[in-house]
């Protein structure tokens, strides 16, 4: 049994239709629990006070901002190599969510920076690379919208996404190498090192990250399903016009 079986649109519709309710309800429960716990039930941070609670939105949004782009690049490679329309459509469906999450990360970061760093914005590596990420999303979405033929648009945006991922990584290191000084703290979570977030804050953060990811998958799946249905409706309309 090959994994490529699931690339068939009909099979994708069946599986994603079954998975969608779990994603939606899982996202709703995890977001309510994670954000409720984090925003109202955790103790006050000894230095930052109430402002530290924005971590429950900022960190998950920032994680999604980066990882959505990698998912799009992965889907683009599969789409280009295996000629699967579903993966092009999944990349298309993910892009606006990624752009929204990047914007959310930038805005919450600025709101958090104002009381704690004393400034809304600094040109430091982390912030700059997230801003560049945002422009990549905008360019990708603009290219989808600019090309009328959906088949061409799928291939061209996939090429753009792959070129973009190479240059996004290069810009990240280009800004980091010579502007090493930064106000931003190191990553909050990691798999190997010790966590940088105290336990009381850490557990609700994990729940709310899970909530954000489930929300992402719920929106992405339903957007992909909409795209597939639009394609099908277009094909049917063409067929009707031909008869």
């Amino acid at each position: 049994m090959s994994i490529w079986r699931y690339a068939n649109p009909a099979e994708f519709m069946r599986i994603s239709g079954a998975a969608l309710p779990f994603c939606i309800w899982g996202a709703a429960v995890a977001l309510v629990v994670g954000l409720g716990w984090g925003l109202f039930l955790t103790p006050l941070h000894y230095e930052q006070g109430e402002s530290a609670r924005i971590i429950y939105i900022h960190v998950p949004a920032s994680m999604l901002a980066i990882n959505t782009y990698f998912l799009m690049a992965f889907a683009s490679i599969i789409g280009l190599v295996r000629r699967h329309h579903v993966s092009f459509l999944a990349a298309k469906a993910a892009a606006p969510i990624g752009a929204g999450m990047t914007a959310l990360a930038l805005v919450t970061g600025a709101l958090w920076g104002a009381p704690t760093w004393g400034t809304w914005w600094v040109w430091d590596p982390k912030l700059t690379s997230v801003l560049i990420m945002f422009f990549f999303y905008i360019g990708y979405i603009a290219l989808w919208n600019a090309i009328e033929d959906p088949e061409k648009a799928a291939d061209l945006t996939a090429v753009l996404c792959l070129v973009g991922v190479v240059f996004a990584v290069m810009s990240r290191y280009a800004v980091e190498i010579f502007d090493g000084r930064t106000l931003h703290q190191p990553a909050s979570l990691s798999l190997d090192a010790e966590e940088n977030v105290a336990n009381v804050y850490y557990k609700p953060l994990l729940v709310s990250i899970a909530g954000f990811y489930l929300f992402f998958f719920a929106v992405m799946l339903s957007r992909t399903r909409t795209e597939i249905r639009l394609r099908r409706a277009r094909a049917l309309a063409l067929q009707a016009a031909r008869d």
């Binding site: 360019g139 603009a142 070129v163 240059f167 280009a174």
Partner: peptide, 17 residues
């Protein structure tokens, strides 16, 4: 216009360095 939107972010590493 679209071209500048697509290409300018890609120019960043070269410009920064």
């Amino acid at each position: 216009l679209l071209l500048s939107l697509l290409v300018l972010p890609l120019y960043l590493p070269t410009m920064i360095l």
